[in-house]
Design a protein around this nucleic acid. Structure first.
Length: 605
RNA sequence: GCUGGCAUAGCUCAGUUGGCUAGAGCAGCUGUUUUGUAAACAGCAGGUCGGGGGUUCGAGUCCCUUUGCCAGCUCCA
């Protein structure tokens, strides 16, 4: 069967649509009508136009801004006088289907920029688009009565656009500027065939099932309380069990790597935040209060506390690198609209550390932290990428110091063949950083760990150590977090494992189901044994049928359900339902304990 | 913060165009049953319909306001 030509591909990788090819000649490579990356790009772009056409028919006063293809489909930004809600999407979809039935071809013609300015003189949004185009000639695409300024590429005709779905409607600032007018944005997705669209929608449904907010409520891990305030998480017993296991594992791994635990106060005088630069550069995110007529700030970061502790006693070059760590509770005023389950909250705990070292030690220290990050990521089967962020607009310190610090980070990664991207202007106000971004099961990226090089705060706080030549020198500070925050990390863990946590952090690790009351005593004895070893278990001995209790136990997503009846009591064994292996088997009590203790040790990092 | 939407029992949801005492399943509690691998049976209890104000003879339902949540924008661990 001959493939349908959707568009063509130039040797330089650019897409040439059939309309353009008709004018300038056909490149050799064709893009067939399928779900390849290039084909989808064209299909989705044209679907965005089709949507615009439908919107224009339904809302004649609509004016359109831009309608690009993005990772998750496409969108179009536009202005209308009417309010558009989710239920209107159906109406627009229907109109789009109607338009396809009219069998419009998509035609292209070119006009000069001057003609375009004249043509769209009544449309300030299109004029805004035009102002961003440097070319002297612009192209117009036309389907039926609908015309749009566009550089393409597009499919040849509307009949290629059957398989789409409008997914959501939202506001979006014109040009992404927070201070600009807000337009209406509608997102959609499109594929070459129906099955792929269906599969995509199914994938979205699956993703919703592992949403940590849903699982967190179902599994009673954490909660939020409307009356208590937005963005302030409460850890329920099961969530707190999980979290404390994670904390314990991580505490050991820090101690093993030579970190010293410290702890600073939750609140410090505002003058400290003025000295550090937080007041000027981070003040919008800080909670301030007054005590006895003096201004105080609740800490949004832990660095100041650690600096004071460092300064309290004299330090020698022999002490460096010196690593202080703290599970630091921080408060940050996040805008109300960005709060999102445990992924964005206003109070959270960082697995924070500050490493004081000499400039010469930067590279080795950074590498050691990178190794630490890698060990933790591997333990939880996470894929991750690294990104170096450079000096932001709001920053303290001289450019050459920034350059030095940034180069230090780059060298550390480059010299060890560790790949990284660059985020220009994304650094912290006191120094550049390496961000560690976890790719979750759904391909989304989350910033978690971070490694920041800071020459500025040591200078501002006059931090010193005595060097080998008996002079006083200023150390460099490396700010770093591995998980980032327990809140965000646990949210990602929950979604990554769909609630089925590995044994060494599972909130409940074993559920015992005694078959009848006669077996409860044996269950209690085993539970005590496990408690002694720091393993959490529960006994499902309620007055329910055996089948029901097994069902309830299984729904808890625990690693092991152990059934105990006459045979088990008599032979000192347990009948296991193993969640990970998805099988059932019998073990002696001793084998059971050995197996669990072994799996507990798997948590060592 | 902005745009649009949502808010009914611990959880998931019903509740006609405003009209009797707001319903169901699961979870909870009580009892009967004592179970061998994913829902035994019966009963009980549970709600200021997010909060406040208003319109109306009458509001879960309409209006205003406020809090929280959801989707995105902008920002970030």
């Amino acid at each position: 069967m001959e493939q349908e030509v959707l568009a063509y591909l130039n040797s330089d990788g650019t897409i040439v649509d059939t309309q353009t090819a008709a004018q300038s000649g056909e490149p050799e490579t064709i893009i067939p009508f399928d779900n390849s990356e290039k084909a989808l790009e064209v299909i989705r772009h044209s679907t965005a136009h089709l949507m615009a056409q439908a919107i224009k028919e339904l809302y004649p006063d609509a004016q359109f801004f831009v309608g690009p293809v993005v990772d998750e489909g496409f969108y179009y930004d536009f202005r209308v006088s009417e309010k558009i809600g989710e239920e209107d999407l159906k109406k627009i979809e229907k109109k789009m289907k109607d338009l396809i039935k009219k069998k419009y071809k998509i035609e292209k013609y070119e006009i000069s920029k001057a003609e375009a300015l004249e043509k769209f003189s009544q449309d300030d949004l299109k004029l805004a688009v035009l102002s961003r185009i440097p070319d002297e000639t612009v192209s117009i695409y036309k389907q039926g009565e609908f015309e749009d300024l566009c550089r393409g590429p597009h499919v040849p005709a509307l009949r290629y656009l059957h398989n789409f779905k409008l997914t959501r409607v939202a506001g979006a600032y014109l040009g992404g500027d927070e201070n600009a007018e807000m337009l209406t944005r509608i997102y959609g997705i499109a594929f070459a065939d129906k099955a792929s669209l269906k599969a995509h929608m199914l994938m979205i449904e699956e993703a919703k099932k592992r949403d940590h907010r849903k699982l967190g409520t179902e599994m009673e891990l954490f909660m939020f309380d409307e009356a208590s305030g937005a963005g302030l998480p409460f850890w329920m017993p099961k969530g707190a069990r999980l979290r404390s296991k994670l904390e314990d594992i991580l505490t050991s791994s820090h101690r093993r790597r030579g970190y010293e635990p410290v702890r600073g106060p939750e609140i410090l005088r505002a003058d400290m935040w003025r000295t550090s630069g937080h007041y000027a550069c981070y003040g919008e995110n800080m909670y301030l209060t007054e005590i006895d007529g003096q201004e105080y700030g609740i800490k949004p970061m832990n660095c100041i506390g650690h600096i004071q502790i460092f300064k309290q006693t004299g330090k020698s070059y022999r002490d460096l690198p010196l690593k202080y760590f703290e599970y630091g509770v921080v408060h940050r005023h996040e805008k109300s609209g960005v709060l999102h389950g445990l992924l964005r909250v206003r109070e959270f705990t960082q697995d924070d550390a500050h490493i004081f070292c000499t400039p010469e030690q930067i590279k080795e220290v950074v590498l050691e932290v990178v190794e630490f990050v890698d060990a933790v990521m591997k333990k939880f089967d996470f894929d991750y990428t690294m990104e170096i962020s450079t000096k932001p607009d709001k920053a303290i310190g001289d450019d050459d110091v920034w350059e030095l610090a940034t180069q230090g980070l780059k060298d550390a990664l480059s010299d060890n063949d560790l790949p990284f991207g660059i985020d220009e202007g994304g650094g912290a106000f006191y120094g550049p950083k390496i961000d560690v971004k976890i790719t979750d099961a759904l391909g989304r990226k989350w910033q978690c760990g971070t490694i920041q090089v800071d020459f500025n705060l040591p200078e501002r706080f006059n931090v010193e150590y005595v060097a080998e030549d008996n002079t006083r020198k200023q150390p460099v500070m490396i700010h770093r977090a591995i998980l980032g925050s327990f809140e965000r990390f646990i949210a990602i863990l929950t979604e990554h494992y769909a609630g089925e946590f590995p044994f060494f952090i599972a909130p409940t690790q074993v559920i015992f189901v005694p078959i009848s009351d006669d077996h409860v005593a044996y269950a209690k004895m085993l539970k005590n044994l496990l408690t002694e070893e720091g393993i959490d278990s529960e006994i499902y001995g309620k007055n329910d049928s055996l089948n029901k209790r097994i069902r309830l136990a299984e729904k808890q997503k625990v690693p092991y359900v152990a059934i105990l009846g006459d045979a088990e009591v008599e032979n000192k064994t347990v009948a296991i339902r193993d969640r990970r292996a998805k099988e059932q088997y019998n073990l002696t009590q001793d084998e059971f304990m050995v197996k669990l203790l072994h799996q507990l040790k798997e948590g060592k990092i």
